[in-house]
Design a protein around this nucleic acid. Structure first.
Lengths: 141, 141
DNA sequence: TATAAACCCGACTAAAATAGTCAAGTATCT
DNA sequence: AGATACTTGACTATTTTAGTCGGGTTTATA
């Protein structure tokens, strides 16, 4: 399984975006400065987010990005999927001849990983961007 | 976060061991053959499991490993911890000056990762080796 | 007591993934 | 025209992973 910086950055950037999401687009430069994430890396990340229609881009001066849906409708699972952070447990491939062939002993952990994946995806499927924004603004009262 | 082959192998090997766990120790060679995991790699893994007192070794001919506790008392979390598969989300380090200093904007995802870690650890904390062994023998009825 | 089975241990390495950087654009506002 | 900001693709250093390898030590048994 993996859950790395790219996914974290994506979430951070989107929370930032959701917060400052007025009528005006938010530039990556601003996000970069506020969140301390390299501009180049942000560009990579937002390119993916745009392709998955999580954000919309506005080109030119005063341009930037805006959310493409309401923050409530953007689930964390969508974000992770967009930046290739599939919550994947390691599956059996090479061993298909030996441990995991459906017949003999069978991969002893197959069910376990499936169960775990569901468990985690369920977590990410419930949490929306909006939840995080709220969490965050509550904390600063 | 990571959850890789090493953790999966550890679990597979221990389920195997728990199943064949009679009075006699089970050799890594047998596990290697049954599960299709390289013997050398198994040795590495069992060295760690032994240090964390999850298994006991019996040296010499006819030697091998036995469980050090009842299968019911060995939780998956113990296994993953033993082989260094901490369920770790990526924390903020470098950014401590910028995004995550407790004052300014503060790392927008800190709470999220803590919550997720708890969620996953909770899962692994409930599942015991015994649960897996049972799952597995049920399936072969 | 020799031998073989099995554990023990540390160093090494190839391959993959990660976390970026860099360069050269294009679009749009003023 | 110029500045701002998005767009794209290639490149790269570092780290992690998934092992391998070579040398041990211990102990049952013939």
């Amino acid at each position: 399984m993996k859950l790395t910086s790219k996914g974290r950055y994506a979430v951070m950037a989107l929370v930032d975006l959701a917060r400052f999401n007025t009528i005006n687009p938010v530039s990556l430069r601003d996000i970069s400065l506020r969140q301390g994430i390299s501009l180049d890396y942000l560009e990579q990340i937002f390119s993916k987010l745009r392709k998955k229609e999580i954000v919309q881009s506005v080109r030119g001066t005063q341009g930037g990005y805006i959310l493409n849906k309401k923050a409530k409708e953007i689930k964390l699972i969508n974000i992770f999927e967009a930046v290739d952070e599939k919550v994947k447990t390691v599956k059996c491939k090479k061993e298909s001849k030996k441990g995991c062939n459906g017949k003999a002993i069978k991969c002893l952990t197959h069910n376990l990983w499936d169960e775990l994946e569901n468990h985690i995806n369920n977590f990410f499927d419930k949490k929306s961007l909006d939840d995080l924004v709220k969490d965050n603004s509550e904390r600063r009262v």
